[in-house]
């Protein structure tokens, strides 16, 4: 699972909650929309990144595998969409994305992460982690 690979590489401390988050996602519940804020909390948001990551990846998967979202064709073309789908679902032979396609995917992951409440810095870290995991699957690193 791409999500586990990204977490293992970029957020290893969250591996122990990964299965709980994934199970929640499989149950079809919205992730990371209502974090639990304690009324006596410290006031600094230290949420786990995994829920936002899995929400972003599931959006990406839906967009590429089904082609239901416009940006895939508009920005990375139909070939790029097929390559991304193959990378995400581990179809062989997997072909790495080219630089333009990577940039487009990176930008979309960052934007989606921000939509899920992450600040710019954390969203960019997530984007880089996802691109890194895709490159590994494509055999580029």
């Amino acid at each position: 699972m791409l999500g586990r690979e990204v977490v293992a590489a970029a957020y290893p401390s969250e591996l122990e909650i990964f299965d709980d988050v994934a199970a929640e996602l499989r149950r079809g519940r919205a992730l990371a929309t209502r974090p639990l804020r304690a009324p006596v909390g410290m006031g600094v948001d230290l949420s786990a990144v995994s829920p936002a990551l899995l929400a972003v990846l599931s959006f990406l998967a839906a967009a590429t595998v089904t082609g239901a979202v416009e940006w895939t064709v508009a920005t990375i073309g139909d070939t790029g969409r097929r390559r991304l789908a193959a990378l995400m679902t581990r179809q062989s032979p997997a072909v790495a994305l080219d630089a333009d396609e990577e940039s487009a995917v990176y930008a979309e992951v960052v934007a989606a992460a921000e939509r899920h409440g992450l600040d710019r810095g954390r969203a960019e870290t997530m984007g880089a982690a996802v691109i890194g995991a895709l490159r590994l699957r494509g055999g580029r690193e």
Partner: peptide, 10 residues
């Protein structure tokens, strides 16, 4: 706490 928790508390 669980993965939903966003803030530390005592």
């Amino acid at each position: 706490g669980n993965w939903r928790l966003s803030e530390a508390f005592t």
